[in-house]
Design a protein around this nucleic acid. Structure first.
Length: 191
DNA sequence: AGCACGATGCTCT
DNA sequence: GAGCATCGTGCTT
């Protein structure tokens, strides 16, 4: 089942936690590339100094200000794309960064796209699933976008760790260390 | 196994 | 012009 708009129209921390175990799907040339989401991070509003919306609405972050259930995809470090799912009410900028997946469908293609390497990292996820800026702003709640998220396996609290978000080196406290990162500890049971 | 570093170009001040 | 929600390599232990 495709996760509906109402799934995303909730507090971002709730969405980030519940996206663990869900299935990220990318349709390329009629072929499904998919993986179970293993790691997420929440970015919540203009007060969150780690969030791209910290300085208000710009051309880059505009999608985050739109309705929930859309893809916010940004380019960084001169070569990498990162995928987010927009959350909360329209007008409030918030999103969940998809940081890692366990590939489940289209394994050969994913393997080839990743040159045999893992898919544990936000830019590795987008490279593996052929996601780039051309998909910024697409609707994650319908298949016609070629990118959507389906409900997957429930993940128990015991198999989830919570911790600080990654890569926010110059972000001031408390935002730098606030535990808004969610990770499936042992994903061997999904294999 | 872990750390340091360079790559590389877009976005906003 | 500075900074960046990263990755892979290569060197050290």
């Amino acid at each position: 089942m495709i996760l509906p708009r109402a799934f995303y129209a909730r507090p971002t921390l709730t969405v980030a936690r519940e996206l663990l175990g869900a299935c990220l799907v990318r349709l390329v040339d009629g072929i499904r590339l998919a993986g179970i989401i293993l790691e997420t991070e929440a970015y919540i509003g203009e007060n969150d100094l780690g969030c791209h919306a910290k300085s208000g609405k710009t051309r880059r972050n505009a999608v985050m200000y739109g309705p929930p259930g859309y893809a916010y995809i940004y380019f960084t470090y001169g070569m990498h794309w990162c995928l987010n799912a927009v959350t909360e009410a329209e007008g409030f900028p918030a999103a969940v960064l998809i940081r890692a997946i366990l590939p489940t469908e289209g394994l050969e293609i994913i393997h080839k796209r990743r040159n045999g390497r893992d898919t544990l990292g936000p830019a590795k996820v987008t490279q593996a699933l052929a996601i780039d800026g051309g998909l910024n702003g697409v609707n994650l709640t319908e298949t016609s976008s070629g990118l959507w998220i389906e409900s997957g396996l429930p993940v128990s609290d015991e198999s989830v760790t919570v911790g600080p978000r990654v890569g926010l080196y110059t972000v001031p406290e408390p935002w730098k260390s606030i535990p808004w990162r969610f990770q499936v500890v042992d994903h061997s049971k999904f294999r």
